[in-house]
């Protein structure tokens, strides 16, 4: 990968074989994660969550409740880590920022005409500037999938580069919306493109399109991150988002990170889950490990 390029050349992207990727993912799911490995893994997963609310009906009240949950996942059980970030629309950044004050939890804002990205560049940049000015620590942008599928890679490249510049100190996560990219080859191309254009993180999905995050898609993105690391020594973060609702699945993802990128990526600085339901499922599993009894959601706060 030529890292000095100011554009993206798809010829530098290797092909991906879908069936082999799926086989490899199936192998991750056969890992047996028990006892202390499980407890540690679940706590790690909790600390990697971007607790998310991205609804048209989001209100300040809802966001404040979510932020409280982010800081106090389950006070009845000591030793539960806080989540990594709260992810909201730009108009909610200020509310979230205030609610999370004093905690180490970041505020991530989806910007750039999320979720479709169907807006002129200037609107996207304005959206980004606004979110950053409101105090967002992280920007989750979407790529222009239509342009990407048309083969206008440099359009997409330039857009990401411009948003990256608009982010200033905020971390940029680039959402590929893999559910619209159709093939793993495209996922790999979009990953390489986003990384070269300046992404700090690459992210699978908006959560608004099915399928959202899947293990094969995530593996291909991790492989892109690995190749970039091999080529430059620079680390890029990864965030699967949407569709990861159970502890078991979250552990499968951690196994995948563990065996693909290794220990350096096994922390919230480099790996995140974009999820809303996952937190409570992790809590139920941790409680089950502690008490031996299977749990009910009635006993865990739903914000």
């Amino acid at each position: 990968m030529n890292t000095t390029l100011k554009s993206y050349d798809p010829r530098f992207t290797p092909p991906v074989d879908q069936v082999s990727v799926e086989e490899r993912c199936a192998r991750f799911t056969t890992r047996s994660i028990k006892k202390s490995t499980k407890v540690n893994g679940l706590k790690l997963a909790m600390s990697m969550i971007d607790l998310t609310t991205l609804e048209g009906k989001d209100s300040e009240g809802k966001v404040r409740q979510l932020c409280y949950k982010a800081m106090h996942p389950h006070d009845a059980m000591p030793g539960i880590p806080q989540v990594a970030a709260v992810c909201v629309y730009p108009t909610m950044v200020k509310v979230a920022k205030k609610a999370l004050k004093g905690s180490a939890i970041n505020v991530a804002a989806v910007a750039t005409a999320f979720p479709s990205g169907m807006a002129p560049l200037q609107v996207k940049l304005d959206d980004t500037h606004y979110a950053v000015e409101e105090g967002a620590d992280e920007i989750d942008m979407v790529i222009s999938r239509g342009k990407f599928l048309q083969g206008e890679y440099n359009f997409v490249f330039d857009e990401i580069a411009a948003v990256k510049e608009a982010c200033g100190k905020a971390h940029l996560k680039v959402i590929l919306e893999t559910g619209e990219l159709s093939t793993l080859d495209n996922v790999r191309k979009a990953s390489d493109l986003a990384i070269l254009a300046g992404a700090d993180f690459i992210k699978t999905s908006t959560g608004k399109i099915q399928p959202a995050a899947t293990m094969p898609v995530t593996l291909v993105m991790l492989e892109a991150i690995r190749d970039y690391y091999y080529a430059t020594g620079k680390m890029i973060g990864m965030k699967p988002a949407g569709g990861i609702a159970t502890s078991k699945l979250a552990l499968h993802y951690l196994v995948m990170v563990n065996e693909t990128l290794g220990a350096q990526w096994l922390n919230p600085d480099w790996f995140r889950f974009g999820a809303s339901k996952l937190a409570n499922d992790i809590l139920m599993q941790l409680m089950k490990e502690q008490t031996g009894n299977y749990q009910s959601l009635n006993y865990f706060s739903n914000d």
Partner: peptide, 19 residues
């Protein structure tokens, strides 16, 4: 040459307990 020495760390991460 420096990059060639880059290696991923598969020893200090997630240790799977005997199953």
């Amino acid at each position: 040459a420096a990059i060639a020495d880059l290696a991923l760390d598969f020893s200090s991460g997630f240790k799977y307990e005997p199953a």
